[in-house]
Write a protein that binds this DNA or RNA. Structure first.
Lengths: 272, 272
DNA sequence: TAATCTAACAACGA
DNA sequence: CTCGTTGTTAGATT
């Protein structure tokens, strides 16, 4: 389940590695991931060149020349891997593979499912899944003032709010655990009940937790573009996935509770 | 319940009448319609000048100088009326009144409820209710191609789709009746089952029905900015509110049916 | 365990 | 009854 930190790392690696490469072949073993019939996709992508790779939330934006974008969402726990021209190792199982003119390849192995959408640059605004993405929490525009504007008038629970990609893009059920713990907020707290200080703590927590993971290269169980794992391992989690372990702040045992349809790991004493 | 045609007419009248006027006083008898505390609203709006008035869907956009917008939604059957400086008639009941420096006034009388929101120009994109508005059905951008993009992949029922302001802005439960009849579509038809011809008929019907009402000055039971009613009366409806009358196409008696939570008037023979 | 979208439904507003 | 929005939930998806 790659979230913003993992996707940021992969986008950066893809950008450095794929820039300028020309696509010569694509294979799609799971046509449902596409936003068009497979034949059309094959026809349109052939011969295009990678201009840059960036990310927004959990989406990868592969900018192509001429004037197209390949939008990739890895869904739940997909692996996106690079194979250099020399490396003739047989690729692992994949649902999607791109081959470049120099012989290098990129494979995507979806664990459950995901999206590989090809969109003309001029139609990007009509691509609903990316057009509705909210603020980028590590961008310049993510100021406390703008974050407060986002919160105003909302009655939703804070965890549901954070997981909704239309509000803030890139947070999933992994990082949200420690983001809430660090802000001392219970997942079920209503946004409308947050004090200014709590909102500020939440704002800071989002940036701190995500930035730290990027610095560590992402989660230890998620392979990056080159198949290497990140350094954000179990020991780095504060309360996430730490059921029965002591809270790092007060020693109270961490509980796993169901909140809505997702699992939450909380310190029942610190998070209110 | 004013819809796009009525709001378009009012916006045009407001634009011609209020341009350049400076606001000197506001009265709010129902503070819930505002997006901020009343005192703040009073302080911020005082002294501002009307630059222009436009509309999007069922929303009025009153552009103010300096750099603010007054966003008004009349909700269900509100009346928005102008009183000239000379006219000293006591205004009818109202929940909101603006007074201008020349002595003219604008009143809003909400029958149920509505919104009067003041937003800084730079914050317009964060105003959720207007930021999420869909296509403007009478704008240049409302091409058949763009309409088709909107339909692609949707499984929703056609009436629900049309009433959702995030798709097309400005259609309510009045005009939707004849829009569907003219396109020969039953309100419960799923978007995904529409043929290209049916989609085209729907597209054309939206424009025809709305344009015709604007030409007639809106509905006969909705007063415009000057308190005059439109010419779109009972006789102009095709099937809307015509329970028991013959269908203008085939003579079958028109039925009133419940579709979801709203009432629909349909020709059971023509609309499939 | 994990993600996203859609649609249907309920609650709310005064 | 009407309108419009918000949030919640269920279902679907290889």
């Amino acid at each position: 389940m790659p979230e913003l930190p993992e996707i940021t790392v992969i986008a950066d690696q893809m950008n450095r590695t794929l820039k300028g490469k020309r696509m010569t072949k694509e294979e799609v073993l799971q046509p449902k991931i596409l936003n068009m019939p497979e034949e059309k996709f094959a026809r349109m992508i052939k011969g295009k060149t990678v201009e840059s790779v960036t990310s927004r939330g959990k989406w990868l934006f592969v900018k192509l020349r001429p004037a197209y974008l390949l939008l990739i969402n890895l869904g739940m726990g997909a692996e996106l891997l690079y194979f250099s021209p020399k490396k003739s190792d047989p690729e692992k199982k994949f649902q999607f593979r791109l081959t470049f003119s120099d012989g290098s390849r990129v494979t995507v192995h979806f664990w459950w499912f995901g999206y590989v959408h090809l969109v003309a640059e001029k139609d990007l605004v009509t691509h609903r899944m990316t057009a509705s993405l909210g603020m980028q929490p590590l961008s310049k525009g993510f100021t406390f003032q703008n974050f407060m504007k986002l919160l105003r008038g909302r009655k939703i629970e804070v965890k549901t709010f954070l997981l909704d990609q239309k509000n803030v893009a890139g947070i999933g059920n992994v990082y949200v655990q420690d983001i809430l713990f660090r802000a001392k907020l219970h997942p079920n707290r209503k946004i409308s009940t947050l004090s200014a200080a709590e909102a500020k703590a939440l704002y800071a927590s989002i940036k701190t937790i995500l930035n730290r993971s990027i610095r560590l290269g992402g989660l230890a169980y998620e392979p990056n573009f080159f198949g290497h794992k990140g350094k954000f391992d179990q020991s780095k989690f504060l309360v996430g996935y730490k059921t029965g372990k002591p809270c790092p702040e007060c020693g109270t045992l961490i509980e796993k509770v169901r909140t809505g349809s997702t699992a939450s790991y909380i310190c029942p004493k610190c998070q209110v």
